[in-house]
């Protein structure tokens, strides 16, 4: 259970970091960095460092906001509006993905070992029950929210004019 969760979070994290590093647009890069931050927060929670996770998420989201504002300030005039729009977008993303975590995390007390973590086989009904109602459910919900937010936001970004976000 835990291991699968870990693999999922890991893959998502790698995905986000790839995006952060290799995207041509700065906006997308910042966006993906935010995603990285949130996945790593989930990873911290999984590894039973919840307090650290909270602090981490708070600080790094703040950092990304600072980066974003800097980007807005330096963009050439016509693109400023686009960035402001996307700033809203990011705000939504943050709300959907991060806020959930922020609110739920105090309640996420991931136990060290739980008898319900016996592996029942991936894909089985018992497995799904464990995901939805088991002791790690909050973590699963948060992860789901993150994926959803990502899936909603990214096409919006990509659909936009390619000039947007190009600071070259």
């Amino acid at each position: 259970m835990r291991v699968e969760l870990f693999y999922l979070i890991a893959i998502l994290c790698l995905f986000f970091s790839l995006g952060a590093v290799f995207s041509t647009k700065v906006v997308t890069s910042l966006f993906c960095f935010l995603g990285c931050v949130l996945t790593v927060t989930l990873l911290f929670v999984l590894l039973q460092a919840s307090a650290i996770a909270v602090i981490y998420m708070l600080l790094f989201c703040l950092l990304v906001s600072i980066y974003w504002v800097t980007a807005i300030v330096f963009l050439p005039k016509p693109n400023k509006n686009a960035y402001s729009k996307h700033f809203l977008h990011v705000g939504v993303f943050l709300l959907l993905g991060g806020w959930l975590l922020f609110v739920l995390l105090p309640f996420l007390q991931v136990p060290a070992f739980s008898p319900a973590e016996i592996d029942h086989g991936f894909g089985s009904a018992r497995h799904l029950v464990n995901v939805l109602f088991g002791p790690l459910r909050h973590l699963w919900y948060a992860l789901l929210a993150l994926i959803l937010a990502f899936l909603i936001s990214v096409p919006v970004l990509i659909r936009d004019n390619t000039k947007c976000g190009d600071l070259s």
């Binding site: 590093v21 700065v26 890069s29 960095f33 980066y67 600071l167």
Partner: peptide, 8 residues
């Protein structure tokens, strides 16, 4: 980009 460097 400088900002991307910071991100990395």
């Amino acid at each position: 980009d400088a900002l991307t460097l910071l991100v990395c």
